[in-house]
Amino acid sequence: MFAFVSRRLALAVLTVLAAVLISFLLVHATPGSPGAIKAGPSGTAAQIAQYNHELGWDLPLWRQFVDYLANLLRLDFGTSLIDSKDIGADLAARLPVTASIALFATLLSGVVGIVLGVTAAVRGGRLGRLITSSSGVALSLPAFWVGILLVYVLSLQLGWLPATGYTRFGDDPVGWLMSLALPVLTLTVGGAAIIARTAGAGMREALRQEHVRTLRAMRTPEWRIRYVHALRYASVPVVSVLGIQFIALFGGSVIIENLFALPGLGQASQAASSSHDLPALVGVVVIATIVVVATNLLLEVVVAALDPKVRTS
Rank of each mutant, 00 (worst) to 15 (best):
residue 55 L to R: 07
residue 302 V to E: 05
residue 302 V to C: 04
residue 177 L to V: 14
residue 217 A to F: 12
residue 111 V to M: 01
residue 313 S to F: 13
residue 203 M to A: 14
residue 80 S to K: 02
residue 210 E to K: 11
residue 293 V to I: 14
residue 62 W to E: 13
residue 258 N to V: 03
residue 284 V to W: 00
residue 271 A to C: 00
residue 18 A to L: 10
residue 167 T to A: 08
residue 137 V to Y: 10
residue 300 E to Q: 15
residue 247 I to L: 07
residue 34 P to Y: 00
residue 71 N to P: 06
residue 97 V to L: 07
residue 301 V to R: 12
residue 184 V to A: 04
residue 128 G to E: 02
residue 236 V to A: 14
residue 173 P to N: 12
residue 9 L to S: 10
residue 165 G to T: 04
residue 300 E to G: 12
residue 295 T to K: 05
residue 47 Q to T: 03
residue 132 T to K: 09
residue 251 G to S: 04
residue 291 V to Y: 03
residue 266 G to Y: 06
residue 273 S to P: 00
residue 264 G to L: 13
residue 126 R to T: 08
residue 240 S to V: 15
residue 262 L to S: 09
residue 145 W to K: 02
residue 206 A to V: 08
residue 94 R to V: 09
residue 169 F to H: 03
residue 93 A to H: 13
residue 142 P to Q: 06
residue 241 V to E: 08
residue 121 A to I: 01
residue 206 A to S: 10
residue 55 L to K: 07
residue 88 G to T: 03
residue 223 W to C: 10
residue 283 G to E: 03
residue 238 V to P: 15
residue 299 L to V: 14
residue 198 T to R: 15
residue 115 V to W: 00
residue 197 R to F: 12
residue 87 I to S: 01
residue 62 W to C: 08
residue 190 G to D: 02
residue 93 A to T: 11
residue 104 F to C: 00
residue 265 L to C: 12
residue 39 A to D: 01
residue 79 T to P: 11
residue 210 E to A: 15
residue 219 R to Q: 15
residue 63 R to Q: 08
residue 114 I to G: 02
residue 252 G to A: 04
residue 165 G to N: 04
residue 184 V to H: 02
residue 108 L to C: 05
residue 206 A to E: 09
residue 215 L to T: 11
residue 156 L to K: 11
residue 11 L to A: 15
residue 241 V to K: 04
residue 78 G to Y: 06
residue 293 V to F: 10
residue 137 V to P: 08
residue 225 I to C: 08
residue 286 V to S: 09
residue 313 S to P: 14
residue 42 S to P: 13
residue 179 S to W: 06
residue 280 A to D: 09
residue 216 R to T: 11
residue 47 Q to W: 01
residue 114 I to N: 01
residue 293 V to H: 13
residue 23 S to F: 11
residue 223 W to G: 10
residue 148 I to V: 15
residue 118 V to K: 01
residue 89 A to D: 08
residue 70 A to C: 12
residue 78 G to M: 07
residue 261 A to K: 13
residue 224 R to S: 14
residue 298 L to C: 11
residue 55 L to Q: 06
residue 102 A to D: 02
residue 306 L to Y: 10
residue 7 R to M: 04
residue 79 T to K: 13
residue 2 F to S: 11
residue 73 L to P: 05
residue 78 G to H: 05
residue 115 V to D: 00
residue 203 M to E: 14
residue 257 E to L: 01
residue 185 L to R: 07
residue 275 S to V: 00
residue 297 L to M: 05
residue 128 G to Q: 03
residue 188 T to R: 07
residue 87 I to Y: 00
residue 233 Y to K: 14
residue 47 Q to S: 02
residue 239 V to T: 10
residue 279 P to C: 07
residue 218 M to T: 14
residue 77 F to R: 01
residue 276 H to Y: 07
residue 247 I to C: 06
residue 66 V to K: 05
residue 62 W to A: 11
residue 287 I to K: 06
residue 161 L to A: 15
residue 40 G to N: 09
residue 161 L to D: 15
residue 101 I to L: 05
residue 255 I to T: 06
residue 200 G to L: 10
residue 100 S to W: 05
residue 134 S to E: 04
residue 67 D to S: 13
residue 275 S to C: 00
residue 223 W to R: 14
residue 12 A to Q: 04
residue 163 A to F: 11
residue 305 A to D: 08
residue 86 D to V: 06
residue 48 I to M: 03
residue 233 Y to S: 14
residue 104 F to G: 00
residue 248 A to R: 05
residue 112 V to E: 04
residue 90 D to W: 03
residue 8 R to K: 05
residue 273 S to G: 04
residue 56 G to K: 07
residue 26 L to W: 06
residue 190 G to H: 02
residue 101 I to N: 01
